[in-house]
Amino acid sequence: MSQFRRKAKGFFTILSKFILFAGQAFKHIPYNIRHPKEMLKHIWTIGVQSIPIVGLTGLFTGMILGLQVGQALDYVIAGTSQFVGGALGVAVIRELGPVLTSLIVVSRVCSSITAQIGTMRVTEQIDALSTLSVNPMRYLVSSRLLAGIISLPVLCYISSIISISGGWIMNVIAHGTTSYTYWYWVRFPLRMVYVVEAGVKMIVIGTALMLISTFFGFNTKGGADGVGKATITSVVTSSFMVILLDYMLGIMFIIFKL
């Protein structure tokens, strides 16, 4: 019982620290809007440099879905593979796009942010920033937070478009559907609110990912071992939060009939 109490106390201590950390990070966002140099650098590394891997993952996911869902539909009712575009469009834009993009950002960006900031912490570079009159929260955290909020929705839309295009390639090649038919069925069930839903999800998830990865980096203790542990905790927490937030926001959009 005492062990449970100790663990619960530890969890709530970290949670309260995280809330204070997030508050500080948001406080410095206006400064980073007025002085966007650092934020633009992070948009390059978080957003632009993620486009190839996000695009490739989206393409192959769309291609395999276009092939296999088409096959499954044909198996149930022959000739229905032409409707794949409808299912693929909605699934990719509402769920697969946001989740896949976020998980790639976790592995490519969040791990590197935690390791980088964690190394800066253990080698006293963060203390050095403070002694040079630079607020580390403003310089290291808020700039990345803003870059993540801007980059992730864009990455998600890029991934979704490429993914649906991948489905189109396979649907046309493997099932003989015409391009016109495929794109007609992609557009048919799509509603603007799904696109908005994906954007909202990515803004919320992007915020969570940037805060989690910078928080664990910022609170790294010890040497190389500490950096390793912080990175693992950051990646595991971020991956779990991607799925949880996607689920919660998805449910919210359904409950409120958005």
Binding site: T119, T123, E124, Q125, D127, A128, T131
Partner: peptide
């Protein structure tokens, strides 16, 4: 105030 840190703490 200028400070020299134990490990240098240069921005790598």
């Amino acid at each position: 105030i200028g400070m020299l840190f134990q490990g240098g703490a240069l921005f790598d």
